[in-house]
Amino acid sequence: MAESIIKIEGLTKTFGSGATAVTALDNINLDIRQGEIFGIIGLSGAGKSTLVRCMNLLERPTEGKVIVDGMDLTALHEKELRQARQAIGMIFQSFNLLMQRTALDNICFPLELAGVSRKAARERARELLRIVGLEDKEKAYPAQLSGGQQQRVAIARALATNPKVLLCDEATSALDPTTTLSILELLKRLNRDLGVTVVVITHEMKVVEQICHRVVVIDNSRIQEIGTIEEVFRRPKTEAARKLVFPQTEHTVKFSGKGKFLRLAFNGNTTDRPIIAEMVLKCGAPVNIAFADTKVIDGRMVGHMILQMPEEPEIVRKMLSYLDSQNIIYVEER
């Protein structure tokens, strides 16, 4: 097992005091390993942003320790903490570029803060622009760039000082599905090529599914579930994880018959082949589609569907094994 790069021990964060106090995080323990892409998923207000902001102490924990690369950040003085932050890159939903600086000068910014000479900084910034595929945009101002391009500049800026960790707070939530995919691919590539540990905060399971190795589900200020993508998404154990994998129940058509209802989730990991039709043909029995809300984005199917299964257990078993073979996530609808 790889070494730990971020270790969080007994972290609690309370905003305000007295009757109006809000506990955003409640006794969080977490161990993120060097070189992995780690997902933190939860619904809005779950405490994800607060947790990631505690990882570089933009938010100071009320209780607990934050150990990054062997150093307890909560024990550092202001100056040491600023130094430590240069080893932790961060990107945001709204990009947060300096609007009055060019793409190149934005990337130079953290290098200036670190006292790197102007010439060396520009050289490094050009190299990073090349890495994120924007070598022709060095003179462009953020207002002249698309959202996806701005996020690429932000990623380049966050990586300028060679950090060991890249924190991403809803980094793709302001982008369209196609751009989201390309940014996720970039993060994956940077993780592979540079070995940077990536922490991805999101409320969208397709993001986590696309790039994360492990994921933690946060709900109600607490960790509900942690594990590999396989473990958490294919067989969610907690209600919180179920809610994320299978967004809330909609009106479904009720058919007569005793067959069980099965909820299928398509998360962009299947192509738009007619999976249900193939399953029906292969297993030789019909199913009812009680509800469907799927769409195809870039040739990948996204959304979910509720099927009423046949009554015969033998056929149901065959169908489930077919779905397994196709990597379709499903749970029995209660």
Binding site: Q83, N96, A114
Partner: peptide, 15 residues
């Protein structure tokens, strides 16, 4: 000035 931009510079270790 956008709060997020200030936040981003603090995250990069700005004094």
């Amino acid at each position: 000035v956008d709060r997020g931009v200030i936040e981003a510079s603090l995250s990069m270790g700005a004094s």
